[in-house]
């Protein structure tokens, strides 16, 4: 099923853009991706890179690292041209980064954080997780770290002592696995990732239940380093915004479980910035 769809997308990419393949030898655009999306799908990333490269006239290379921090360091250090990062590191480094586009999920550039527990573990609310094992996604994740801590703080609980023990899984899908397999009693995950996983692997998400839905936050954005020439930034923004208008682009978006990419203002992330300030970690 997935393979057939993949073949279909390749076919679309090849036929509609056959004449506009990236010029060989031109310096590639380096695009960092983090676990804000399902970054384990190399085949899909290759297809997307081909599509973007054909539009851009330059090859596009996706760069992956185990942790958000590493991608952010590469971006800030000028070794990446653009990256898909979480809203939390964005608000921390807003001055050094420029918003290129924000994905549109279920009709708006917004998403939620979910707190999940085992489907049959008896835990029905976030408060019941007190004194239990809890899995964070990444210390630089809004949904998988900042929001649940902020929520606890809002309840007047100390996020460092509310749980018996916590650990990082370094990825939202792993957090879902940790809860499903009983390694953790609860976890905070990206709602978009959970929903997308629920479509891809319903047996896995079926072992978990959502016990807390956060308010809507700005969706993890695609940002560029300030060093990237303005022309490139504009071009990349145009291509991403226009992806929903292209058949092959739409097929790729469907794989991502997204409607498309839209322009956004930094103000979209003020809630996250507020939480970051509240927890005293704002940069």
């Amino acid at each position: 099923m997935t393979l057939n769809r993949r073949r279909f997308i390749r076919h679309l990419v090849a036929t509609t853009l056959g004449a506009a393949w990236p010029v060989l030898g031109a310096s590639p655009v380096r695009f960092g991706v983090t676990a804000v999306m399902l970054d384990d799908r190399v085949g899909f990333l290759n297809d997307w890179a081909a599509w973007l490269g054909a539009r851009l006239g330059r090859p596009v290379v996706f760069v992956q690292r185990a942790r958000y921090r590493e991608i952010l360091d590469l971006l800030l250090g000028g070794q990446l041209d653009l990256a898909w990062i979480c809203g939390y590191p964005y608000v921390q480094h807003q001055d050094a980064l420029e918003l290129i586009a924000v994905p549109s999920f279920q009709g708006q550039p917004l998403y939620r954080a979910y707190v999940i527990a085992a489907a049959e573990g008896g835990v029905q609310s976030f408060e019941e997780l007190a004194g239990r094992l809890f899995a964070w996604a990444d210390p630089d994740s809004n949904s998988g770290y900042l929001y649940p801590r902020s929520h606890l703080a809002g309840l007047g609980r100390d996020p460092d002592h509310f749980f018996r023990r916590t650990f990082f899984t370094w990825g939202h899908p792993r957090s879902v696995v940790a809860v499903a397999e009983g390694l953790a009693d609860g976890a905070a995950v990206d709602g978009y990732v959970w929903e997308t996983l629920a479509r891809r692997d319903p047996a896995l998400t079926g072992q978990t239940q959502i016990i807390l839905r956060s308010p809507l936050f700005g969706f993890p954005p695609i940002v560029a380093a300030r060093d990237l020439p303005a022309a490139d930034r504009t071009r990349l923004r145009e291509i991403l915004i226009g992806q929903a208008g292209d058949a092959a682009g739409r097929a790729l978006l469907a794989e991502l479980n997204l409607d498309g990419f839209v322009t956004a203002e930094p103000a979209l992330f003020t809630d996250i910035a507020a939480m970051a300030r509240q927890l005293g970690r704002s940069g």
């Binding site: 650990f167 990082f168 370094w170």
Partner: peptide, 18 residues
């Protein structure tokens, strides 16, 4: 490194938990 997930992923292996 207190990397619980790394240890778990190793011990769990490709067969999964249990």
């Amino acid at each position: 490194n207190e990397d619980v997930w790394l240890a778990y992923a190793l011990l769990r292996g490709p067969e999964g938990a249990e």
